[in-house]
Computed example of a mutant assay.
Amino acid sequence: MWISRNRRFRGSVWVRSLVVVVSLGLILTACGGSDSEAAASNEATTVVEGGGASTALTPATFRLDWIITGEHTHFYAALEQGFFEEEGLDVEILEGGGSALALQQVANKDDDFGLAGFDALAASRAEGLPATMVANIFRRSPHVVLSLAETGIESPADLEGKTVGGAAGSSPTTMFNAFLEAADVDADAVEMVNLDAASYIPALLEGRIDAFVGFAPSQYPILLASTPEPPNVLYYADSGVVTVSTGVVVHPDTIEERPEVVGGFVRAVQRGLQWTLDNQEEAVEMMTARFPRSVEAEEAALAVEQVGVLAFGERTADAPIGWMSEEDAQQTLETLQKYADLGEIEPLENYYTNEFIDEDL
């Protein structure tokens, strides 16, 4: 890891990062425009000129899963490096309000593409909302148990007799019992406390809880920036929980009617992620230059590092970026059916497709 993990930005990041923590526990019911910094960063281009000819770009909107953070660096890399433009696309990246909102926007055809969790996609389809995942970015579960080094929680077994915070209804909380069962930990020996996500870190630092469940790309960097010693982190995936997560979703009609747009968008995202993982320091510098008021360099570097961890699962370690394993998808749905009350499982092709994945990337 190239970045030094010092604590020089603890104060300012702590205040700003609470906004991110709050965001992870909420789902907005409506979405206004992006803030001025985000809007300015898109730098839309509609015509490419070269060799005496001009080619009109196809406009497309992409709704993120939440406010812009370091874990979205690869999408802005695709924009900054011209990968979208090379595919003939003029992409506008918009801040979001949770996976549910991104899926709603796509289902209503208010946005062309969205970023959403596979669990939210499955739940939305169960409610009749049409959406399909065309690129699976997080192919390893982003859910983690975070604790202070001093608690000594270094393995799942260490959770017995401990108090763990989690927001009721959040996916890390919903999947916590799947984690405990996979790790052969008695769920009755762990006290689960319902907390608002904004309370996780204060409660941990004040000793009101021993640990909390959350998301690796966003909450781990925040906690690391707030403690003198690196926190302990237990990944659900390390105990055998297979739940694919965040990916790019589109309306099935878009796949049918504009496959060239979908293919171009997916290829650009694949290239953006690969470029980011290959050029992490440069990618972070790019991101902080675009969002100097809202993206901190060290936090973004840690988020990018976590994205690299989550982009490849056990079955997809050697697979092209974005490609989803049939076994992983099926296992995720069965886990959601058991622990998240997902109803009847549809045919897998209703949930995702690898049709647009460039296998050379």
Score class of each variant (00 low, 15 high):
282 E>Q: 10
152 G>W: 12
193 V>M: 08
309 V>K: 04
177 N>F: 12
31 C>P: 00
124 S>L: 11
261 V>D: 05
74 H>T: 00
255 I>T: 05
59 P>H: 09
295 V>I: 15
222 I>T: 12
242 V>C: 06
64 L>R: 03
192 M>K: 12
114 G>T: 04
163 T>N: 03
334 E>R: 12
244 V>H: 02
297 A>D: 02
351 Y>T: 05
100 A>C: 04
2 W>K: 09
90 D>A: 15
143 H>C: 14
272 G>Y: 02
223 L>P: 10
127 E>T: 01
60 A>I: 06
150 E>N: 05
99 S>D: 07
163 T>P: 00
202 P>A: 13
57 L>Y: 04
346 E>Q: 10
145 V>C: 08
276 T>M: 15
150 E>Y: 05
279 N>G: 07
170 S>D: 07
263 G>E: 03
46 T>Q: 11
203 A>D: 14
351 Y>E: 03
247 G>I: 13
161 G>V: 04
83 F>C: 06
93 I>E: 01
328 D>I: 11
298 E>A: 14
82 G>C: 10
64 L>V: 05
74 H>S: 04
58 T>G: 00
34 S>V: 02
336 L>F: 15
344 E>I: 08
158 D>N: 14
14 W>N: 07
168 A>E: 11
327 E>P: 00
309 V>F: 09
182 A>W: 10
237 A>G: 09
74 H>L: 14
131 A>Q: 06
208 R>E: 15
208 R>M: 08
346 E>D: 06
43 E>I: 05
335 T>N: 14
293 R>Y: 13
191 E>T: 14
45 T>I: 14
180 L>F: 08
212 F>M: 11
359 E>P: 00
229 E>L: 11
273 L>I: 06
87 E>F: 06
53 A>Q: 11
323 W>L: 02
79 L>Y: 01
16 R>E: 10
174 T>C: 04
165 G>K: 04
120 A>G: 04
180 L>W: 08
283 A>D: 00
204 L>H: 03
227 T>Q: 07
14 W>R: 15
238 D>Q: 13
336 L>E: 03
63 R>K: 14
39 A>T: 11
1 M>H: 09
298 E>H: 10
285 E>P: 02
348 L>F: 09
361 L>Q: 09
32 G>D: 12
300 A>G: 07
8 R>H: 12
338 K>Q: 14
254 T>L: 15
314 E>P: 00
133 M>P: 00
361 L>F: 08
222 I>K: 02
331 Q>T: 13
244 V>K: 04
76 Y>A: 07
